[in-house]
Design a protein around this nucleic acid. Structure first.
Lengths: 188, 188
DNA sequence: TTGTTTACTTACTAATAAGTAAGTAATTTT
DNA sequence: AAAATTACTTACTTATTAGTAAGTAAACAA
C-alpha cells in the first residue's frame, strides 16, 4: 500500500494542471488514471464525483494563496507586486497554462454550483488582496494611480488573467508587455 | 424549403452564442438542433464537422469587426474608444457571455488548428486596431499614457476580455470598474 | 491470528458525443 | 415534363464520458 494520501495528492496536482491547460469540462478521469498508471475506478475511489475533485482543486488553491498572503505580509508594496507578477508568469513556462480563476471564469456556466461558489471566493480573495495593497501602497507614496483602488485592482487582476490566455494566441511577449505597462502606470 | 441560408445563418448565430456562453468544447450539435427544431443530421448537412462550424463562427466575427473598423474610421479617438467599450459590454446583458477571443483563448488547447489560427488572426486584428488608436490618439493629444502603445493596448484588450469573464463570478460592476479605470488612466 | 480497513482492479452501465448512409419531399434547372 | 439539386429526416455507428458493483491483496488493529 502507498503512503496515505500519495495518490490522492497526485490526482489533485494533475487535475489542477489539466484544469489550467484544457479546462474543467474537458478534464477526464481517463486522462488522470492513464498518466498516473492507475485505473479509472481508482480515481473515483478518492474522488467519487468529478465535482468533488474540481472543488478540492479550487479549495486547495485558495488555501495556498492564503498562505502566500501570510508569507509576504512583511514585504514592501513593490516587492509584493513583483512577487505576484513573477509567480503568475510561471503559468506560461509550463505549456501555456492559464490561472485557475481565468479557467473557472471562462467555464463558469459549465461548473457545478459548489465550484462556482469556490471560484467566486477565490477571486474575491485575490482582488481584495490587491485592493489593500494598492490602497496602502498609494497612501505610503509607493504607488501612483487615479481613482478607486478597487477599480485599479479590477484592471490588474483581469489584465493578468486575460493576458495569460491571450499569450497562447500571440506569444508570451504579450503578457510581459502587460506586466511592464501595469508597473509603469503605478510608478509615482 | 426554407430561404437559401436561413437555417445555416441561424446555426452560426446560435453557435456563436453557445461558444460565448459555454465554450467550443461544450457546444454540441444536439443543443443546436433542439433549439432550432431540426434534427442532428440537419446541422451536419450545413456543417459536416464541428470544426467547420467553429471556424465559420470565428471568420464571421473577424469580418464583422473589419466592417466595424471601417464604419468608425471617421470618428474621434474617444468616440471610437467609447463605442468599443459599449459594444463589448453588451455581452454582459445577454446571460453573461464572454467575447469570442476570450472563449477561444481559454479553450485554445482544445481547438482544432484551423480555429487556433483564426483566433490568433482575430486577436492580432483587434489589438492592432487598439495600437493604432492609442498611438494616433496620443500624438493628437487626446490620450495620455506612458510607454509603448502596444503594451497599453495589451493591457486594455486583456483587461476587457478578462473582465467579462470575471464579471460572471463577482458581478457586472467589476467590468464597469475596469472600463472607468481604463478611461481615467487615458485622460490627458 | 483473526477481522477490518485501505487502496485499489476488473468488469460493467447508461448517457452523450460527433459523424454517416440512405431515403424523401420540395424546389429549381433543363 | 424530366432530371438534378437542395434541405432536410430516419436510423444508425463508434467513441468517450462519469459513475458503480463486486472482488482482491496488503496493511493494520484487536
Amino acid at each position: 500500500m502507498k503512503a496515505r494520501t500519495e495518490t490522492k495528492e497526485k490526482i489533485v496536482e494533475l487535475g489542477t494542471d489539466l484544469m489550467k491547460s484544457i479546462g474543467y469540462p474537458s478534464l477526464s478521469y481517463h486522462q488522470i488514471s492513464c498518466k498516473l498508471g492507475i485505473k479509472n475506478a481508482a480515481v473515483h475511489y478518492h474522488f467519487p464525483s468529478k465535482e468533488s475533485l474540481g472543488l478540492e482543486i479550487l479549495t486547495d488553491a485558495i488555501i495556498s494563496f492564503e498562505e502566500v498572503i501570510f508569507n509576504v505580509s512583511g514585504l514592501g508594496s513593490w516587492e509584493k507586486l513583483d512577487l505576484f507578477f513573477k509567480n503568475y508568469r510561471r503559468h506560461l513556462e509550463s505549456n501555456n497554462k492559464i490561472c485557475l480563476i481565468g479557467a473557472s471564469a471562462s467555464d463558469y456556466q459549465e461548473l457545478p454550483e459548489s465550484m462556482q461558489t469556490a471560484a467566486t471566493e477565490y477571486l474575491v480573495l485575490v482582488k481584495g488582496w490587491f485592493v489593500e495593497l494598492l490602497d496602502k501602497g498609494r497612501k505610503e507614496g509607493n504607488f501612483h494611480f487615479k481613482g478607486e483602488p478597487e477599480n485599479k485592482a479590477a484592471v490588474i487582476v483581469s489584465a493578468l488573467a486575460g493576458g495569460l490566455q491571450q499569450a497562447r494566441l500571440i506569444g508570451n511577449a504579450h503578457f510581459d508587455g502587460i506586466v511592464n505597462q501595469l508597473k509603469e502606470d503605478l510608478k509615482p
